[in-house]
């Protein structure tokens, strides 16, 4: 019996040591940790741009129709075309249209969309960097809930914006656009729900997704 006690004590000690030599982690935690470590925002944005974005461009609203709705029935504009990833007074829209260049600034073009095409309706960003989330959010393709942390969601925007500058804006500027020329456009814009309540004229700012001279 004495021997049995000895063996039991030894077994307990060995088991205790073995138990404390190993530890268990939740597999989901590990998977999420790996996802964080391996996530590459540039690759994600590349895939978004090459393989996903163009599939939703056909749903882009005509910018003339959208501006009319902004001025007459903002709630309807939001209901039919607006997108937001959460709770916001600002909605994102995917737009398309043709227009005449009225002004060429250092980092923008002012373009008239509506007849008689003498007043600017939209301001297209043509700067060397683009801030914000207009393209990401207007597409409606990327769900923030897919990401374990929102930093990744935001990094994607930064990478999409770099693609816009490199592959849309620079090639367009290389073609030397001039005042009076007509452009064809797909783009994204963000507009606050009360933006058109104020009296002064609102110029819709657009991030280009496709920008061509006719």
């Amino acid at each position: 019996m004495k021997k049995a006690c000895k063996y039991t004590a030894a077994a307990v000690i060995i088991t205790f040591l073995v138990y404390h030599s190993i530890y268990f982690e939740n597999l989901e935690d590990i998977k999420q940790q790996r996802q964080r470590e391996t996530f590459n925002a540039a690759e994600y944005a590349r895939d978004f741009w090459d393989n996903q974005l163009f599939s939703v461009l056909e749903k882009a609203v005509d910018v003339k129709e959208l501006i009319e709705l902004f001025n007459t029935n903002m709630n309807e504009a939001i209901r039919k075309y607006g997108k937001t990833p959460g709770v916001s007074r600002i909605y994102s829209y995917l737009i398309r249209g043709n227009g005449k260049i009225l002004t060429i600034g250092e980092d923008f073009l002012q373009v008239s969309i509506r007849e008689p095409k003498t007043n600017p309706d939209i301001k297209i960003t043509t700067g060397f960097y683009i801030p914000g989330n207009a393209v990401r959010d207007a597409s409606g393709l990327i769900d923030v809930s897919e990401f374990s942390d929102t930093m990744k969601f935001n990094e994607i925007s930064g990478e999409i914006n770099k693609i816009v500058v490199k592959e849309v804006i620079r090639p367009f500027l290389d073609k030397k656009p001039q005042v009076g020329k007509t452009i064809r456009l797909f783009g994204a814009t963000q507009v606050a729900q009360d933006a058109f309540e104020v009296k002064e004229y609102q110029l819709v700012e657009v991030i280009p997704i496709r920008l061509e001279l006719e």
């Binding site: 990833p85 959460g86 709770v87 916001s88 007074r89 923030v144 809930s145 929102t150």
Partner: peptide, 10 residues
């Protein structure tokens, strides 16, 4: 429920 709901900052 959506997992993450960003609330805009002004």
């Amino acid at each position: 429920f959506p997992q993450k709901v960003p609330v805009a900052v002004e």
